[in-house]
């Protein structure tokens, strides 16, 4: 019973690991450059979930000073994740901008097709 509680109590961490693996798999396995960015986003969001879960203190309230409240959750990981979200947004924007330019230059955003084109170019060079 205690084990089951542990298992359920750690549900956030299970979600983190599942999301992380899903994201990571999509990044590796997908050949479409946009889908890779989607995978990368899922991967990054899993880390946000991880940090935010880590800041939770059992029975703690939101970290706003109040005389009635004795225990607060740890606000630091949340603040860190605000920064990480900004970084994530910047990365996504840049990745999508690159995909747009790749599409203009190659006429495709499928990795296999791009690799075939690049391979031909190398033979010519």
């Amino acid at each position: 019973m205690a084990e089951l509680q542990d298992l359920l109590g750690l549900v956030n961490y299970w979600v983190f690991i599942v999301l992380m693996m899903v994201g990571f798999y999509v990044v590796i396995a997908q050949g479409n450059l946009i889908k890779k960015v989607v995978g990368l986003n899922i991967f990054q969001v899993s880390v946000f979930v991880f940090y935010i879960s880590m800041g939770k203190v059992d029975g703690g309230s939101a970290p706003i000073l109040d005389e009635a409240v004795k225990i607060y959750s740890n606000p630091l990981p949340h603040v860190l994740i605000l920064t990480a979200i900004v970084v994530g947004v910047a990365t996504t924007a840049l990745a999508l901008a690159l995909v747009v330019r790749i599409n203009r230059a190659y006429g495709t955003i499928e990795e296999d097709a791009i690799q075939a084109i690049e391979h031909d170019e190398e033979d010519l060079a």
Partner: peptide
């Protein structure tokens, strides 16, 4: 134009690396 795909691949790998770090 291969600079674009090189940058994209580096972005994917680099972001994975940095995320592993955090």
């Amino acid at each position: 134009r291969r600079a674009l795909t090189a940058a994209y691949r580096y972005l994917i790998m680099g972001t994975l690396g940095a995320t592993f770090y955090i």
